[in-house]
């Protein structure tokens, strides 16, 4: 591990300015991903600005919904009564991720910034365009069971590993950011990128920009929501496929729908095609099947993850069925 400087920030402005001035500086929150990456020499910042002391961990009701501070711990969000009541899928998604110890440290901001779990990305002996642009992608011709089926490029087929972000995508969350040039708001579905020709860039966040909060808009029907995670073991495994769904149902007709997927793309994958089919349709298996089939129509699987297409379809149907059956 390279030597690095470490500073604990007590003011947001100072934190933002410090990181802005140094291209090799990084914010550190819970450190549950960054420290691993540093130990593996995947990330080598020369300066860490610890933002754990910043007053950004509140979860509060706002006029338009709920604001979650960027430094709120994953476990605090998951067990927050307001979140559990209004956005159960977010609570479920958080609890489906990692382990209790990790969730106690990991922050909401850090969860948004998680990097892929592609084996080749983590292994510095292997080529990887995300880690070392231009070195090639070892996964495309390699072992790619856990990789993307949507939105990949010929440069990168990695997936985004977060469960939380899938729920946020379904909820149309908005990321609040403070940067050297002021504040801005980024819709969650625009926050993460597809790999394209620059897979080294995970998000649209500019260097020095600090995530301060995530806003959840009011969405009364989110009470009727569900997060389903399909994985290789019962806990502590990344999703093969996951689905976050919420349905607004009236008299057996779907008035509004949200479907987002994890484990299938470089970003949380909002299944727009499914939503279009669901809205205005009857709550039944035919509707759910049509929505699922529309979603996987554009899937482009790799050699070892063809199963994900069928799995994604079935997971969407299951998740919709669960929500459809809710009182």
């Amino acid at each position: 591990m390279k030597l690095f400087a470490y500073t604990r920030a007590t003011e947001q402005d100072v934190a933002v300015n410090t990181v802005s001035r140094n291209q090799s500086a990084k914010f550190i929150g819970g450190g549950t991903n960054l420290l691993d990456l540093m130990k593996e020499n995947v990330e080598q910042p020369n300066q860490l600005i610890d933002i754990n002391s910043l007053p950004l961990s509140k979860i509060e009701v706002t006029r338009n919904g709920v604001r979650i501070g960027a430094m709120a711990r994953n476990s605090d969000v998951a067990y927050n009564a307001i979140i559990q009541e209004r956005y159960p899928l977010l609570s479920q998604a958080l609890l489906a991720g990692a382990s209790p110890q990790l969730r106690n440290m990991a922050t909401v901001g850090g969860n948004l910034m998680q990097r892929t779990r592609c084996y080749y990305f983590y292994d510095t002996a292997m080529p990887c365009n995300k880690r070392e642009p231009g070195s090639g992608c070892a996964a495309i011709e390699g072992f790619n069971r856990i990789h993307a089926i949507f939105g990949a490029s010929d440069q990168c087929i990695a997936t985004h590993p977060s469960d939380m972000c899938v729920a946020l995508a379904a909820l149309d969350a908005v990321v609040q950011v403070q940067g050297p040039k002021g504040d801005r708001q980024i819709p969650i579905t625009d926050f993460h990128r597809l790999p394209g020709d620059t897979p080294q860039i995970d998000t649209v966040l500019q260097h020095g920009e600090l995530i301060t909060a995530v806003d959840l808009p009011n969405l009364p029907f989110a009470k009727r929501s569900h997060y389903l995670k399909v994985r290789d073991r019962a806990s502590y495994a990344f999703a093969l496929v996951s689905v976050a769904t919420a349905l607004d149902i009236e008299n057996g007709i779907i008035r509004a729908a949200r479907v987002a997927m994890g484990g299938v793309a470089h970003k949380p994958w909002r299944a727009v095609a499914a939503e279009e089919i669901l809205v205005g349709a009857k709550v039944n298996q035919e509707t759910f099947r049509a929505a699922a089939e529309a979603t996987v129509k554009e899937a482009k699987p790799q050699k070892h993850n063809k199963f994900k297409v069928e799995m994604a379809k079935r997971a969407i149907m299951r998740s919709l069925t669960e929500v459809g059956e809710m009182a």
Binding site: R117, Y119, Y120, Y122, D123, A125, M126, A138, E141, G142, F143, D232, R233, A234, S235, Y236, A237
Partner: peptide, 30 residues
């Protein structure tokens, strides 16, 4: 029965999932 498997990438000859995050052993929940 359900989890353990170390995968070899024949191009490099290395064990691809060479860590306990990706080489799965049962956890309590299993």
């Amino acid at each position: 029965a359900l989890h353990e498997e170390t995968v070899v990438d024949d191009r490099y000859g290395h064990f691809v999932n060479h860590n306990l995050g990706e080489y799965h052993v049962p956890v309590h929940a299993d």
